[in-house]
Write a protein that binds this DNA or RNA. Structure first.
Lengths: 203, 203
DNA sequence: GTGTTTCCTTGATGTAGGTTAAGATATTAT
DNA sequence: ATAATATCTTAACCTACATCAAGGAAACAC
């Protein structure tokens, strides 16, 4: 049992304080409600078919959330870096089997909460209700944008959109997982990058 | 100026009462906060590039929410029928130009609220904060499912998924808009349906 | 260091769905 | 009723990306 890193809780409290006012008592309640959880590279918080029992705040490290279809192909829904949240709301709140796998891309540190603790926390710190409503709205907004880009732009335009929004992604995530995020095969991304490079050499 | 249909408000109150407890005073506050708005077939609540000033509850009729890409192609994000909500949260809360068009598919009746009235309503009826957090979560869940189906299944499987989830859709929405929802062209849907019919004839 | 995965690249070929064009049917407006 | 408009169908051809196959380069394990 390791002593939880103080800075993980500091990041979480900081996240909330940017979005609402908290008393010292509120902060203590928050700290008591979230438990630290470390995952090694490639470890899963939960896998598709299981119930998502925890909502997690990424204190350090990074994650990918992905779905494996019936042909065995992986589809990355999103990557989660520091100060993002990981989980599956449908599964967390409705206790349905999740469609997602949540995997650490490197040794990572989460602060997790289960549904019982979360409902208690909402009761004790009602202002978090608004914070999470807004967080969910933001999440929805991002997903809606992602959906519209996915259905309206070709793979190269989607790649450019990703690079603009997340310029360091290629240093953080292996290329075949970027392909999976873009909705193409690694072979296609490799070919596409070659084409782009060739075009840029000619310019 | 027509007298607002009582049953529109009844449907809205019923919607909220299924999700939380309301006092008579709460119900009066809700009724005073939402304004009736009628749209004729093909009329828009707002169009892409405009700010979404109203969140609307569909009391009667139906809508489609769609995005027009830079090639002029329309992409239906979702259809909204009775007891659903229409709007664009990103635009409504952040006052950004919306990426969406919201269009009535038939003469329809909405109950709409603007951001100021909504914030006031949250203050006066705090239990609605939870209702809308849960509504947003549900919305997110549905969109996530839609995204995963879109990226992992081919057009025919997406069509079957739609028909299973919404068996009367073909009576309610013209075929070219179903194609747009599926992310294919009307010609492709027509061809696909012919193939399916041929296959079924042979079985 | 050497074997073993994992990851990336390249080429040949296949295919779902896009594109273009045209005609056929419905629906709506006057 | 008739014209105008919106919707649906069909067919020939095209393209972005998938599939299959194979080899090379890193990273990791012992």
């Amino acid at each position: 049992m390791t002593i939880p890193s103080l800075s993980a809780y500091d990041k979480l409290i900081h996240y909330f304080e940017q979005r609402t006012q908290l008393s010292d008592a509120d902060k203590d309640l928050i700290k008591a409600s979230y438990k630290p959880k470390k995952l090694k590279k490639k470890e899963l918080l939960f896998r598709q078919g299981e119930i998502c029992k925890y909502e997690g705040f990424v204190a350090t490290g990074s994650f990918r959330l992905f779905y494996i279809d019936d042909k065995g192909l992986e589809h990355v829904l999103y990557f989660a870096f520091e100060n993002w949240w990981v989980g599956d709301m449908a599964s967390f709140y409705e206790h349905e089997p999740s469609a997602l796998n949540v995997q650490a891309l490197q040794d990572s540190e989460l602060l997790v909460i289960d549904e019982i603790q979360k409902d208690l926390l909402y009761e004790k710190v009602p202002s978090l209700e608004k914070v999470f409503r807004q967080m969910t709205q933001k999440h929805l907004t991002v997903l809606q944008k992602r959906f519209l880009v996915t259905v309206s732009a070709n793979a190269e335009a989607r790649f450019n959109e990703l690079l603009e929004r997340c310029p360091t992604i290629e240093q953080m995530v292996p290329q075949h997982q970027i392909a999976s995020y873009l909705g193409i095969l690694p072979e296609s991304l490799s070919r596409m990058k070659k084409q782009i490079a060739k075009r840029e050499r000619m310019q």
